[in-house]
Design a binder for these strands. Sequence first.
DNA 1: ATGCAAAATATCGTATACACTTTTGGCCTC
DNA 2: GAGGCCAAAAGTGTATACGATATTTTGCAT
Lengths: 237, 237
Amino acid sequence: MNSSADALLTPGDATDSGAQQIREAIRDAIVERRLAPGTKLSESDVGALFSVSRTLARAALQALSYEGLVSVEKNRGAFVAYPSPEEARQIFAARRLVEPGILRSAAERITAPQLAQLRQLLVEEGRLMGERGQPARRAEIKASGDFHLMLASISGNLIMQRFMEELVARSSLVIALYGQSSASSCGHAEHGDIITALERKDVDTACDLMLHHIAHIEADLDLRERKSFGLKEAFER
Amino acid sequence: MNSSADALLTPGDATDSGAQQIREAIRDAIVERRLAPGTKLSESDVGALFSVSRTLARAALQALSYEGLVSVEKNRGAFVAYPSPEEARQIFAARRLVEPGILRSAAERITAPQLAQLRQLLVEEGRLMGERGQPARRAEIKASGDFHLMLASISGNLIMQRFMEELVARSSLVIALYGQSSASSCGHAEHGDIITALERKDVDTACDLMLHHIAHIEADLDLRERKSFGLKEAFER
DNA sequence: ATGCAAAATATCGTATACACTTTTGGCCTC
DNA sequence: GAGGCCAAAAGTGTATACGATATTTTGCAT
């Protein structure tokens, strides 16, 4: 109770300094497809990679398992999640279920600068669409997710925002796995349409567009049953 | 793999044997209001209580923090979550957002035995309603949550089911904190009405009833700003 | 007596160490 | 030569230990 007024300035959202950073790093690596699904994430290796002990590596992997991005098997270790087609369907079903509602909430509270920010995100997305190569496609997937994430952020509901972060991350994993072609390309125009509808305050149309958008992404997936075959494949190389 | 008849089966994600058990135990204690919001959960104490080391206790507390049931502060420790009124509003907003959708999904897949199970849950709920005393009220809150949880289970979407588990748990915490009267009592009849509508395959009415039901629960809360007063109080004690 | 400051204490953050489970490689047997 | 069994190795599960940080207490000066 002494001293000055630092109390208000503390960032405060850092639960653990180390484990959280590692979590973020691995999460990004998974979402950006630098880590292939099914890859084994040995605690020792992860720890060595980030120059920390197994304790922190383990904590990070546990955290990621709660997000559904890695699956840990008792006494076997942690692996980058390999979502089954059924799981993929459920992820998109969840998105169809919640995103219209989020969109409605966001539409009620959205301000002009926020609309501008959305537009800004869109041009960034378009720029990446123009570029070629794998890294650009990865960034494109990420940018596509950021659009949905910002909508959740605008809705003002932290719980839904957190949930959408999880869904978007897992969606990226699914798209990386089962995506056939330039999946997110067709999504770009749809993002723009949604913003336009939002600007007109035509929420119903915006929701419809969102549902179609999600359906389009899902339709571009090849959800045939390859199942655990790919895991073996990944090791065979 | 779809064994369709699985109803209230815990999702088979036994990552660790020990930590998961402790997590469940503490979770139940929080939901059933044996642990008051704001209570400090020292790692040493938790470990000693369950006869395990701090490592497992810490893992369990971390897991609970991801559910939003405990909040961990850097170098301060873990505390039973003390949801702010704003947080409470967001929790219920989230429920209003997702539960109609879950209900629709469930209605599409529901079978006769599952309807019977729902009815069964209802009579159990009614039985607890008849009893008096704190333990009965706790069980009543839990039973009330189980109704919504079973609906999510019937919907067949594991992701939404997991999300609802989190929402219901946090709702129980909120109700325990801000609930004024016999909040869940009026909910009982509404649960029955929803089942009835479901039996008639009148999904739209069921959704309406669900929305009203959630609104009723929320309306019975006293979401005045008591602020962090209670937390300090808990320490002074 | 009160307020500030510094040491003492308690608790968290991280690393290391040990025990147990799973896997793998080799050897023996059929 | 093939298959199964045993042993060694690797890796996870858990416990303990040490260092860092916040909180409390105590002593001193005003």
